[in-house]
Design a binder for these strands. Sequence first.
DNA 1: AGTGCGAAAGCGGCTGATTT
DNA 2: AAATCAGCCGCTTTCGCACT
Length: 271
Amino acid sequence: MTVVLAGVGADSTNFGALAPLYDDGRFEYVPIPEKTRETDESETLGSWSLRASDGTAADLTTRIKPRPIGDADRTVTGDALESWPVHRDPNFEALTYGEHRTSGYVARLRSLEAGDVVGFYAGLRRPDGDRAHRYLIGYVTVDRVDVVRPELPWNEREAILEAHPDNAHTKRARGGELYLEKPVVLIDGREPGGLFDRHPIRLSDYYVKPGNERAQYYLREAIATDWDVRAGGENMMYKPAYRCGLSGEAFRRRVGPLTERTTDHAAITAG
DNA sequence: AGTGCGAAAGCGGCTGATTT
DNA sequence: AAATCAGCCGCTTTCGCACT
C-alpha cells in the first residue's frame, strides 16, 4: 500500500505561465496543452472555465508551446491558442490519469494497486507576484492500473484503451496508436478522489543549498518526514515522481477533505 | 569488480518581465 | 526605451543501480 505523488498541470515550459493561487485559498487547475489537435477531447484552452473568475485558461497566457512529438517546439498564439485542445490529465471528474514519462513515473505508478493513492501536485503562483511553489492540488484513489506497451498486439492495446475511455491518452490515440514508443500507464480511480476546492498543500521550499550558488525548489522536510517519502528527487524543479511509504488511508487522513477545506487542512500536522 | 545506462542535480546563458 | 532582475531551458556532469 503506497502513495505516489505526480507533478502535473500547466507550467512555463508548455503553457507559458503558472496557474494562480488566490488569497482566499482558491486556485486554478489548468491542464497542459495537448500535443496535437488530433484528439477527441472537446475542451480547449478557450473553453476551460476558471473556478474563481469569469475567464478561461486562455486568459492566463499569451503563447503556448504544445511540443508535438518528435518535433521542435511549436508556438501557438491568438485564436489558435483559444481553440487548442487541453491534455486533460489527470481528469478529476472522470477520475482517470495516464503517464508515459520515464524519470521514475512509469515505474512507480505501474506498481500501484487498488486502494493506493495518486496525489497530484502543480506549480501555482499568487497573482501579486510572490514566489511560486509546488502544491498538492488533489488526489485519486486507485481502482485499476494498466500498462499499454508498444509491442502489444493491436487488439490488446485497444482493449486496454477501451477500459479507460475518458483518459486523455485514449482520446489522443488513433487506431490503438498512442504515438509513443514507450509504455504508457493508465490509471482509473474511484472515490474518494478529486480536486481540492481550496487550500492546496505546499510541498516545496525555496532556498540555496550549502555549496550551491542559486536557490532552487526542494521538497519540504516536513512533507518528506510526515508522508514517509522514500523515492524521488529532492529537487522539485524537475517535477519528480515521489513514492511514499504511508497507506492510501493514512494519506487521505493527513491531507484532509476534498471540499470545504480550511487553512488547517493545508498545514502539515503529524498524525 | 567493471561497465553501461538512465536518473538526478547543477550551472551558463538566454528570455521575458518589471521598473524607472 | 533602457536597464535590471528573476525564472527557466536544456546541456553537462555526477551519481547510483543493475547487469555481466
